[in-house]
């Protein structure tokens, strides 16, 4: 980590903090608050998922399930069993992490795309259980009356308060991801994404790191799920289906695999598009598909770095053309 990129990070996070603090001053309608809050929730999931996809080259198509586990642990424990709010969230996070470990450990020991299948199967199983375990989850009708989170005497019971709560978590999660990437673990991860064989031969236990990153990304999703449950106060299985897993994967790719700030951008752009298409829901699937395809074909680095590179290329071309003329 050189001092330049450290400086850049400080500027980036400083700017993010300032934007988070002052943005509500400019937002007037309730609608945009909801959109911003959903962007925040998705960003947390996407940052975690991007650690997995961007640095280990593994695919998860089951992050809807981890997100859902967070929501359902928070919802079921607080509504049905009168659990205190924050401990319920913590229990959800730890349980999700444990489940992710059980799935990740066997499938990541192997070379190849076993994790895709394992997470895909797991996601479908969890989604079925949400609907069928009616006595706990409320079944397909969903679970209502989840209490808002409180801190001291303050209840996070409106869009503005939830904005600050959710975006504080976004800030913390991004900071955690950034620090992780700049630590020993991060260097190992970057080595893995460079060349797994080389990393392995230099003594990096690649399988071990992959499992850890997978568990961490599942826990991020779980935190986001808990926040969602307490914010919306109602959860139902349809929010956690296969399509959500695809959505967050798309956000990772559009933002750029392995790019922390790209995750924020990807979540922002695609969440906004989904919300804007709310009236024409049938175009949802096409829009995501087209976006995903275009970015993958033309800007596989993601829109942030991809467009920057195109810009650089155009600039050098101009220089060359100028030089030619002389």
């Amino acid at each position: 980590m050189n001092s330049l990129s450290k400086q850049k990070d400080i500027i980036g996070f400083g700017a993010l903090a300032v934007i988070i603090i002052i943005l509500p001053l400019f937002v007037e309608s309730k609608y945009y608050f909801i959109v911003l809050n959903v962007i925040g929730l998705n960003t947390i999931v996407v940052v975690g998922l991007n650690l997995l996809i961007g640095f280990t080259g593994q695919i998860s198509l089951g992050h809807a399930a981890f997100y859902g586990l967070g929501s359902y642990f928070s919802g079921v424990l607080t509504v049905n069993y009168g659990f205190p709010l924050w401990p319920a969230m913590l229990v959800g996070m730890l349980a999700t992490g444990a489940v992710a470990y059980l799935i990740g450990y066997p499938s990541l020991k192997l070379q190849g795309h076993y994790l895709v299948m394992a997470t895909l199967g797991f996601g479908i199983i969890i989604n079925i259980l949400m609907g069928e375990l009616e006595q706990f989850t409320g079944g397909h009708d969903g679970l209502m009356g989840i209490p808002p989170l409180t801190m001291g005497g303050l209840a996070f019971d409106n869009d503005l308060k939830n904005f600050y709560l959710i975006w504080s978590f976004v800030f913390l999660c991004m900071l955690a991801a950034r620090n992780l990437l700049n630590s020993r673990v991060g260097r190992a991860l970057r080595a893995i994404s460079g060349s797994e064989v080389a990393a392995n031969s230099l003594g990096v236990n690649t399988a071990d790191y992959k499992v850890k990153v997978f568990v961490l990304s599942a826990m991020f999703a779980s935190i986001s799920g808990s926040l969602y449950a307490h914010y919306i106060t109602f959860i139902s299985p349809s929010s956690y289906d296969f399509h959500y897993s695809i959505q967050v994967v798309t956000m990772v790719i559009v933002g750029g695999m392995g790019s922390l700030w790209g995750s924020l951008l990807g979540a922002g752009v695609l969440t906004y598009i989904s919300e804007a298409l709310h009236v024409a829901k049938q175009y949802h699937v096409i829009a995501y598909g087209v976006f995903l395809c275009l970015v993958l074909i033309f800007l596989p680095e993601g829109i942030l770095i991809g467009i920057y590179n195109l810009f650089l290329k155009a600039k050098t071309k101009k220089h060359i053309m100028k030089a030619d003329r002389h």
Binding site: V116, I246, Q282, V285, I286, Y288, V290, L292, C293, I297
Partner: peptide
């Protein structure tokens, strides 16, 4: 692989 997921969404949509 991601591209086939995207194509799949386009076709389904």
């Amino acid at each position: 692989i991601f591209l086939t997921i995207g194509l799949s969404e386009v076709l389904r949509g």
